[in-house]
Amino acid sequence: MKHDTIEKSIPLMSILVVLVISIGGLVEIVPLFYLDSVIEKVEGMRPYTPLELKGRDIYLREGCYNCHSQMIRPFRDETERYGHYSLAAESQYDHPFQWGSKRTGPDLARVGGKYSSLWHQEHMRRPRNLVPESVMPNYPWLEKNSLDYADIAKRMEVMQTIGVPYSASMIQNAVADLEAQAIPDSESDALLERYGDKVVLDDFDGDAKRITELDALVAYLQMLGTLVDFSAYTAQER
């Protein structure tokens, strides 16, 4: 076909442009929807509890992702420091995902359970109290602000519409579940039944009487990277 012909016919050129661009899409995007290695099923993944979801929203609000990644790459120096490399399945309920692209601070993909909640409280208040060379800002308002969770069910419904498998009972009991996780020694059987026994129950902010933004953020951090049971995990062929 002469170049002349293509150049002088807009419909023909449009069709050819679409064809050329589609090849890139077909080859690079379509396989992600069916290849086993990218939609690997793993044991243990669950949607975030209401408290963790609020914590994640605070994580976004404060822009934590600007300095912290949540993506352990398959390199020796990273796996020795942070633990098993991240799996695609581990961000399946993140909308948007929090992989990040810059590490001013350390990666947080497996920070859950690494430090005590007491450590997180002190660290959020003033990171330099614990890590003298830290450049992380202070977040003193987190423990002062009461958590506003009137809209928690609504937020879960939004997540549901974009594919997070929250059940009707999870949404119905959102407020009760949130309070059960944040208030120590409260009735938490229903919460654990809905979200699994591994849900961390703690007095996340060190203040048993109030539910603060710090409660939510620390609950989120204490869960990160702990959901998949790696003792029962074998990597698929990649």
Partner: peptide, 15 residues
């Protein structure tokens, strides 16, 4: 250990 005991083990309040 350093997250609580500090870099080089310098410690902090409670640690």
């Amino acid at each position: 250990c350093a997250p609580c005991h500090g870099s080089g083990g310098i410690g902090a309040k409670g640690f």
